Amino acid sequence: MARILVDVCHPAHAHFFRVPIHLWTQEGHQVSVTSRNKDVAIEILDSLDIPHKSLGEAARTPLGLASELVRRNLLLTQHIRRTKADIAVALGGTFAAQSAFISRIPSVVFYDTEMASMQNRITYPLATRVVVPNCYSGWTPRGKTVRYPGYHELSYLDPRWFKPDRATALEAGLDEHRPTYLVRLVSWTANHDIGDRGLSPALMEAAIERLSAHGKVIVSSEAELPPHLKRFLYRGPALHMHHLMAFCTGYFGESATMASECAVLGVPAIYMANSRRGYTDEQESKYGLVKNIHSLDTESLQHGLNWLLGMRTEAYREARDRMLRDCENVAAFVVQQVLSTLNR
């Protein structure tokens, strides 16, 4: 039996580890979860009935992130000692890898964000194993990197683990009679967002206005919306978002993670920000599941929206089925990677 520490620092991390936590527990391992109050991460963990210990709020500035790194590493190291964890696991993994290194236990870091170069430079060298998708194009340490065919989002949205429910989607805001479009706006305060930027207010409003002419628009936003746009705000439970997403006609937004979530669910997605991701690049070039837009101007925006509004659902579903055939059972792979690292 292994004592596994899972550090959840972002809402997507809660989803990513949901199935592995269940599988580890089924096998008789003890799983301890530490959390970080970032966006709706705590709400999701609570909704999933995953017990966790919060180690504080997420910082919002570069100076605050540096202070949080010191404070949270201290708390996480104390938690490792108190729970006698055998291994620490995380997505991104800066806190987990550093605290595990200090505590002299192994760690496994899963990641897919190449542009978080500063974060990765202070994380990867201290991790025992770094696990990235085949499409990951950034630096990883030689001799400790494992690659796999797939995407993080398949850990929880693979048809083996997730069945979209239309009634739940309707409760979350899906329009029963018109197309529904999901828009995602981010706050640009995460450590991997340093130096990155997304839509200007004018581009954001232009996208919402264009999509509103073709159906219902629902906006999920980390940042405060202007008063005249608050009527579009998503007001359903955080845990219902993927059910809503699965029945949407299209997605437009600044979140690469949510673009990939839509892609693996078979929903056409536009990712618009100035940074690239290996996974959305592959989902566009190999499967046509995503359109990446990195020129933040009106012409590029309207060109992308033309693509989104003209997508044929049948072709998109076929591409999604082909992608699923090509990819690993990611949740089972996560379970195996952690246990094999511990047992090596």
Rank of each mutant, 00 (worst) to 15 (best):
L75N: 03
L75I: 02
T77W: 12
T77M: 03
I80F: 12
K84M: 04
A85Y: 11
D86V: 05
D86G: 04
I87V: 14
I87T: 02
V89K: 08
G92M: 05
G93C: 10
G93T: 03
A96Q: 07
A96P: 00
A97D: 00
A97S: 13
A97C: 04
S99Q: 01
F101Q: 00
I102E: 04
P106I: 14
Y111F: 15
D112L: 04
T113N: 14
M115C: 03
M118I: 15
R121A: 15
L126T: 02
L126N: 02
T128N: 09
V131C: 13
V132L: 12
V132P: 06
P133F: 07
P133G: 10
P133D: 08
N134E: 15
Y136I: 00
S137L: 07
W139I: 07
P141S: 07
G143A: 06
G150L: 04
Y151L: 13
Y151E: 09
E153K: 07
L154F: 08
S155G: 05
Y156Q: 04
D158T: 00
D158A: 13
P159K: 10
W161C: 01
K163G: 02
D165A: 11
D165C: 12
D165R: 13
A167Q: 14
T168I: 15
E171W: 00
A172M: 04
G173M: 08
L174D: 10
